[in-house]
């Protein structure tokens, strides 16, 4: 059984750092750096050797994106799993990232609905009513109505995630159960990544082809075979380049930009 190395203080530091969730954001890997940044107080406590630290940092630098305020739920679970990994040599560390990937979609789905769809709308409705009359209460109420629940949830989710993670790990000591859970997490993760590929990767080939009677763009044509087919092709080519041909991400970024700008110049892409 686990003896808890992590203290309340470590988790609190991680909560404070989770506020930087969108600070180092970028299109390529989105919130990954902020995630690693928020995990550092925990990793520092658990790993003393350079090699272990490097492994852990690399894990937490993988692509990640979530509703800002809900990041702490993932952090809590990761903290519990890292704690287990630091004590149990047999623990499969790839499970840490797979759990993260499997959970980021569902958490964002719920989180976005709450924060962007509910709290923000209420705060805006109340705030603008006062502010349109020049009343200083407008901006103040807007800020408080949104942020009081937002920070309460951020703090609560860290503790919930950590408790959930620890309780789960201590009940799943059995190797077989653990490997099944891991398999389930991989399935869920891949399924969600597949879905996100369809919604976030976009390419519109606006070049027109005509068969005399009808004129349509190449994208329309491809989409009539299967919607988002171009997104799938883009993903397949990128995967081929990065994983099979081992291209550097930066090379890929430059290549994509050149293709996009040249494509736009000739009116093929848009």
């Amino acid at each position: 059984m686990m003896t808890s190395k992590l203290t309340k203080k470590d988790l609190n530091q991680s909560i404070a750092r989770s506020c930087g969730c969108s600070f180092s954001w970028g299109y390529e890997k989105q919130g990954n750096m902020a995630y690693a940044y928020a995990m550092i107080p925990i990793l520092k406590k658990l790993y003393t050797t350079k090699e272990k630290m490097a492994e852990a940092l690399k894990r937490h630098l993988a692509f990640y994106n979530v509703t800002n305020q809900c990041m702490t739920f993932n952090l809590g679970i990761s903290a519990a799993m890292e704690e287990e990994a630091s004590e149990n040599e047999e623990f499969d560390t790839s499970a840490i990232n797979q759990t993260k990937v499997a959970l980021m979609g569902p958490i964002s789905g719920i989180g976005d609905a709450f924060f962007w769809g509910t709290f923000k709308i209420i705060a805006t409705a109340v705030g603008t009513t006062f502010a349109l009359q020049g009343n200083i209460l407008g901006p103040i109420l807007f800020f408080l109505i949104y942020n009081i629940p937002a920070f309460a949830i951020r703090i609560g989710l860290m503790n919930a995630g950590y408790k959930f993670g620890t309780a789960f790990l201590s009940s799943a000591e059995n190797n077989q159960t653990m490997s099944r859970i891991l398999k389930g997490a991989t399935i869920l993760g891949l399924f969600v990544v597949g879905g996100m590929c369809a919604s976030l990767v976009n390419l519109n080939i606006v070049f027109q082809v005509s068969d005399g009677a009808n004129t349509q763009t190449i994208s329309d044509l491809l989409n009539s075979i299967m919607p988002c087919l171009t997104s799938l092709l883009v993903f397949a080519l990128t995967y081929f380049g990065i994983v099979v041909k081992k291209m550097k991400p930066l090379t890929m970024i430059i290549l994509m930009t050149l293709i996009s700008i040249v494509g736009a110049f000739f009116g093929i892409l848009g």
Binding site: T186, G189, L190, V193, M196, N202, L203, Y239, M256
Partner: peptide, 27 residues
């Protein structure tokens, strides 16, 4: 105009890099 359009096109492509890196360990 084509530079602006081109950059917008590129923004639709870039997430594929992140997903590929992610899929590398799982797929």
């Amino acid at each position: 105009g084509f530079v602006q359009t081109g950059l917008n096109v590129a923004i639709g492509l870039l997430p594929a890099i992140g997903f590929s890196m992610l899929a590398r360990t799982m797929l």
